[in-house]
């Protein structure tokens, strides 16, 4: 091999490396270019804070959906965070080897099940249960957040377990040597030390919940309104795009891309916050959160 060929290989590999950045620039470029006409037509503030979404009357406001997305996400984190943190502590501190060998693949499998299957399960099992016990149609914010809870569990569990495991063993030994019980050690030493990683885990879980589309469509009821209770139907930003793209034209089409822009910006903000906490997650081969 000549030096020239070596040079070519290096440049070729360089191009594959910067491809991620090129693709992101393309994504931003195309979505903004397509969404801009609607933003201009409606006005950015009116688009974001408008309460009325009715394309047939030329009304495009996504505020109810922003509330819908955030509401579903917040509620699902309310269920998922305690459960997954307990599960992560269990995996990192308590579980015997054999139990761990069962639980890890279970969590990976939960992460791997297609979101449509979760949505289908919600539609067939969860919604009818809600209808019987809480009245109404059963399609509700609560149903959507329960399904999302299951979907974000693996993300939060894997990353926070990782964070808990990365705490130096001396911390734990010192605490135990002072006579603290295992639980006192977990609560006062291990858990506080792992907080940056745990916050990262929660934010990434939040990102997954905000971004989920079809599973939410199948159980949330999709009415563009501010919900009065958790039993009311809501519409998420993602659902808005998927539900109406099939027949949208003109400004309506552009408004759906603009909805995508709002969603994209929310995710970028989350990513920046996650990076701020600066927890360098170890990528474990075969880890559930990839």
């Amino acid at each position: 091999m000549t030096k020239y060929e070596e040079f070519l290989v290096e440049k070729g590999l360089f191009i594959t490396a910067i491809l991620s950045i090129i693709v992101i620039i393309l994504i931003i470029g195309f979505i903004f270019q397509q969404g801009f006409p609607a933003m201009e037509h409606v006005g950015i503030l009116k688009f974001i804070f408008g309460m009325n979404w009715s394309p047939s009357d030329d009304q495009y406001g996504v505020f109810t959906m922003i509330i819908g997305s955030l509401g579903i996400t917040a509620l699902s984190l309310l269920f998922a965070v305690p459960l997954s943190l307990c599960c992560a502590i269990f995996l990192a501190e308590l579980a015997p080897r054999t139990v761990r060998r069962i639980l890890k693949p279970v969590i990976e499998t939960l992460a791997g099940i297609p979101s449509v299957v979760y949505g289908f399960f919600g539609l067939i099992v969860l919604v009818p249960i809600m209808r019987v016990y809480f009245g109404g149609t059963g399609f509700s914010m609560l149903a959507a957040s329960l399904i999302l809870t299951v979907m974000v569990l693996p993300t939060i569990i894997s990353i926070s377990e990782d964070a808990l495991r990365s705490i130096p063993v001396e911390y734990k030994e010192a605490s135990l040597a002072l006579g603290a019980t295992h639980w006192q050690t977990i609560r006062n030493v291990i858990f506080p030390a792992a907080i940056p990683g745990i916050i990262t885990a929660i934010i990434l879980g939040m990102g997954r919940a905000i971004g989920e589309t079809l599973a939410v469509i199948m159980v949330a009821g999709n009415v563009a309104q501010i919900p009065n209770s958790i039993f009311d139907p809501v519409r998420a930003l993602t659902s808005n795009i998927a539900l109406e793209m099939g027949y949208a034209t003109g400004i309506h089409y552009s408004a759906l891309f603009a909805t995508g822009i709002v969603l994209f910006i929310m995710i970028i903000i989350l990513l920046i916050i996650a990076n701020y906490f600066h927890y360098k997650k170890k990528v474990v081969i075969g880890g559930g959160y990839l």
């Binding site: 991620s20 759906l256 969603l263």
Partner: peptide, 25 residues
């Protein structure tokens, strides 16, 4: 570092946004 952040961002973009991009591009 920028490339790593790019890959991380790609991994976090909601699938429906990919859908929009795929449609437009």
């Amino acid at each position: 570092k920028l490339i790593r952040f790019g890959a991380e961002t790609l991994a976090s973009i909601p699938s429906i946004v990919y859908g929009l991009f795929g449609l437009a591009f």
